[in-house]
Write a protein that binds this DNA or RNA. Structure first.
Lengths: 372, 372
DNA sequence: CAAACTCCCGGAAACGTTTACAGCAATCAG
DNA sequence: CTGATTGCTGTAAACGTTTCCGGGAGTTTG
């Protein structure tokens, strides 16, 4: 039968050999035509015809083995259910798709061993690069990123001298925006529902909260600070614990999921929002706008950070010799119903007030948004 | 300098050649040891030591080329931001990861050309199989699935005779559950906010709604039916259009995102939920529990469907000769505050009523849930 | 003690592609 | 008319792995 290879195995899918044989040319010519480089008009015609007849589709694995590129990029985040990562993912996917590549998504659960395992596995060359948004960073971790065999871009805070492409925001300043807004609205007993303090964002937000209070000359009541994790359920129970021992007139929450949990805890306990307690979340996700009342939230530019990270990754793949870069996306505040200044007194029965509440002048830095 | 291959290129990563040379054995022996099949104790020791010294990591692409498997599975859904797909994805990912594989996620935007392109691309063998949850199905589409070169499992309705592994639910019956629940609670002017009628779920839910009303002897007022798409914003504006021309005492929404939009439209227009208008969503996502008031929702077993689809896919990969299978997951109804029977009269000021509303006996099929 | 069997090893083929290289014909310049 | 240039083409190597196969050494069996 076949002289060198069993290219005629009746069951197998057509390869470039099949096409070449059918067109009566060599596999080199067939490959050239199929890749659009070279070939005489006659050869091109024959090869194209043969390829169409047998329904040839190039084998991406073999091509990758030869070209040393897979066209796959990975994204690793803690929790794909968190809407902040959905926003990031969407932005990243747009850039990645526009470059003709595909995105592989990993959920790490925030566990370090998971992430380092992922980084080590990069050595098997299954993806061309990776975007990582770690919430905990150890030296091990960092080392694995630095000597990773494929480019890695980090979304989030890293040590100042880490030679890793990095796009970050300033969540301390983000918390400061929220505090300034609430103080300007006359709130003084400001509580804080945070995520774990051993995470990078948790620690930064805690520090930011304390610094901002101090700056406004407000003494911190430790009973107004509570910690859970970055999920809805934990946010709700953390807020319940806080409310059981203290009477805040505002709550800042370390992300929107926590804020939604806190909102539930408040409403279930009979507090009015924002009249009795104002609520401000962080991340400014779609969820914030879906809540009722709509949630004020500190935007940390998730989509923008995602977009920039993807661009950093692509440029590094194009030129691995580039020096490490760091980009910063500034936070901003979206003020919505959950923290608008309230008319004092009991709530008028049955009247919804979305978008119609009385407005107070907001600080300059605040990015006022209309309802919806 | 290397005799056959340039395995000593100082920059390149170590290959099995490097390890074999260093251990003083053939690449065949090295490969066998590294795969844990065969090898004398002494060889095993030498190869393991050599591999550790050079930090050898097998190249997954080359392995895939040889083994004809990549260990990658794809999932294609309309919108990764929709929490119903997040739930599905989580369930699928769990099964996939447990089998030692990885999941590649695609967002199709519901566009058919996107999905068929994806199906055609399967021929390049970059993934071992795919789970597809299409919201529109054409003959072209179906043909591409049937003669796909790699296994495809569909989540959703397909033609009865389609020879494709398929896990579905009965969303007509799901709508019927919602209608029965509302009718039992005394609602009569039941509205319906649907997604596009040219989608499979949209059409099924429309049919289910009409059939269920007829079964309860309620004549349908067409002004109570409105169509948008399956997103939050569209749901909100569809509900606004509906409310501008009709006065429902209940709204069934074709998914939870629409339901949240409808909730906003209702509250912004000054209606009380559930006192004036009850709201029931579909998919029973996390979002439903996060809303205030918490949303009643028809569970279509998303996580379960995802889990089963993943299992079907794995079993088909293991044995491609299996006959096409179809599995069905029954819908159920989670009743929450948004449709609980209300005390007539004005709402008591300032009193939150989550989980404390008066309870009415619910139909047997209804799966009553407590407020968290 | 010879034959059969088991175990381990190395050479080489195979997976399907791209591409360096050399050969060859045709066209161009002198 | 001859030599250089251009444009195609085919052979074969390469990417890095797994695996078939044959051979050799050691062990068991008759």
């Amino acid at each position: 039968m076949g002289r060198k290879r069993l290219q005629e195995s009746t069951d197998g899918r057509p390869t470039v050999h099949t096409v070449a044989a059918r067109a009566g040319v060599s596999i080199a010519s067939a490959s050239r035509v199929l890749n659009g480089v070279g070939g005489s008009p006659e050869t091109i015609r024959k090869v194209r015809a043969a390829a169409a007849e047998v329904g040839y589709v190039p084998n991406a694995i073999a091509r990758s083995l030869q070209s040393q590129r897979t066209g796959l990029l990975a994204l690793a985040v803690e929790d794909i259910g968190n809407p902040v990562y959905v926003a990031m993912m969407r932005a990243i996917e747009a850039v990645v798709a526009a470059s003709g590549r595909q995105l592989l998504v990993h959920a790490t659960g925030g566990r370090i061993d998971n992430e380092t395992a992922l980084l080590r596995r990069l050595a098997n060359r299954y993806v061309d690069g990776m975007i990582l948004s770690p919430i905990r960073v150890t030296d091990d971790h960092l080392a694995a990123m630095v000597d990773s065999p494929v480019p890695v871009v980090v979304i989030g805070q890293l040590g100042a001298d880490a030679p890793v492409d990095n796009v970050r925001t300033d969540s301390r300043q983000g918390v400061a925006l929220a505090v300034a807004h609430l103080v300007a609205a006359g709130r003084r007993r400001i509580g804080f529902v945070n995520g774990p303090l051993d995470t990078v964002p948790g620690a930064a937000r805690d520090a930011g909260f304390r610094a901002a209070l101090a700056e406004h000359g407000i003494e911190l009541d430790e009973r107004l600070v509570e910690v859970g994790d970055f999920q809805y359920a934990a946010g709700r129970s953390a807020a319940e614990r806080l409310l059981a021992r203290a009477r805040p007139d505002a709550l800042i929450c370390a992300n929107d999921l926590i804020a939604v949990g806190a909102l539930h805890a408040l409403l279930a306990a009979g507090h009015r929002v924002p009249e009795d307690v104002a609520v401000v979340g962080m991340d400014d996700t779609e969820l914030a706008q879906m809540m009722f009342p709509q949630l004020s939230s500190v935007s940390l530019g998730s989509a923008e950070r995602g977009r920039r990270a993807a661009e950093l990754l692509l440029s590094r793949i194009a030129d691995p010799a580039l020096p490490p870069r760091r980009e910063q996306v500034p936070p901003s505040l979206a003020v919505r119903a959950s923290s608008r200044a309230a008319v004092p007194g009991p709530r008028p029965a049955g009247a919804a007030s979305a978008g119609t509440g009385s407005e107070l002048p907001s600080p300059a830095v605040v990015n006022e948004e209309v309802d919806r």
